[in-house]
Simulated assay, not measured.
Amino acid sequence: MDFYDKQRAIQWTRSSDIISNSPAGLEHLVGVNQLIVCQRFDLEVPDCLKSSKTYEVMNNQGQRIYFAEERNNWFLHHLCGISRPFTLKIYDNVGQIIITMHKALRCTCCWSSCCLQKLVVKAPHGEEIGYVCQYFHPFLPKFKIKNKNNKDIMKIRGPCLVSNCLWDLNFRLLSLEEEIVIGNISKPCTSSVGGSLTDADKFRVQFPMDLDIKSKALILGASFLIDYMYFEVWP
């Protein structure tokens, strides 16, 4: 793969560190309660020529456990913006596809149910494990995380005003009753990152250590959907 050998200096998780008897590819999420996702930029390539967005997914120790890539249709990206359809694939350290995420083309008007965003998450590649669905609220960005049987398992609530130019952004992972905070998807304020483009598009995902790994994969999917809708940065 043309992206696989990029930035080889990043330390990958060793296979000997992984607990056995876990679903293939998702075992890196066992014993992890935090992921750091950082978009990578090639500053030598003009924006008009970019054909993909790439990310590194790292664990608590700063080890890269996954590499994510969205192959872009340049025309759709610039015509549709965050409404565009996309398929994002996550690879492990030997280049195998572990997770696939797909969002269909939908406009961003949250007043109509046909326009609310939905992400389909498949893991291993081709097997649906669940969905991330936006649902209507007049003031807040809200999402439901559903399992493969379309049953709600948790919710996400964002801030009333979404702008990370002025303050850190935090999207809370909540119980179905919205009374217990389970975790967090957050991104630092861009004015506090010292002008670093790499730090400017880095977000953090936190969840319980003992959460089942398919739910962790769905939360990771939710973080990418939120990134596309609210955090997206192009140099």
Results as ranks from 00 to 15, higher is better:
residue 115 C to G: 02
residue 103 K to G: 03
residue 164 N to S: 04
residue 140 L to A: 05
residue 138 P to T: 15
residue 147 N to E: 06
residue 18 I to Q: 02
residue 170 N to Y: 12
residue 68 A to Q: 03
residue 228 Y to R: 06
residue 168 D to R: 08
residue 153 I to E: 01
residue 82 I to H: 13
residue 114 C to N: 13
residue 89 K to W: 06
residue 104 A to Y: 09
residue 118 K to S: 10
residue 205 V to G: 07
residue 126 G to E: 09
residue 63 Q to H: 14
residue 67 F to D: 03
residue 204 R to F: 15
residue 63 Q to K: 14
residue 81 G to F: 07
residue 195 G to S: 05
residue 146 K to P: 00
residue 97 I to N: 11
residue 168 D to F: 02
residue 99 I to R: 08
residue 10 I to G: 01
residue 162 V to Q: 08
residue 159 P to S: 03
residue 19 I to Q: 13
residue 130 G to H: 04
residue 209 M to G: 03
residue 30 V to C: 07
residue 74 W to Q: 10
residue 79 L to E: 08
residue 121 V to P: 01
residue 86 F to W: 12
residue 39 Q to D: 04
residue 187 K to T: 04
residue 100 T to F: 06
residue 219 I to M: 08
residue 198 T to A: 13
residue 204 R to D: 14
residue 158 G to D: 00
residue 186 S to D: 03
residue 69 E to P: 00
residue 196 S to F: 01
residue 32 V to I: 14
residue 229 M to D: 11
residue 151 K to H: 11
residue 67 F to Y: 13
residue 44 E to R: 11
residue 217 A to N: 06
residue 44 E to Q: 10
residue 166 L to V: 09
residue 8 R to P: 03
residue 170 N to I: 10
residue 104 A to V: 08
residue 216 K to P: 08
residue 25 G to K: 04
residue 222 A to W: 11
residue 229 M to P: 00
residue 186 S to C: 14
residue 81 G to W: 12
residue 228 Y to T: 10
residue 191 S to H: 07
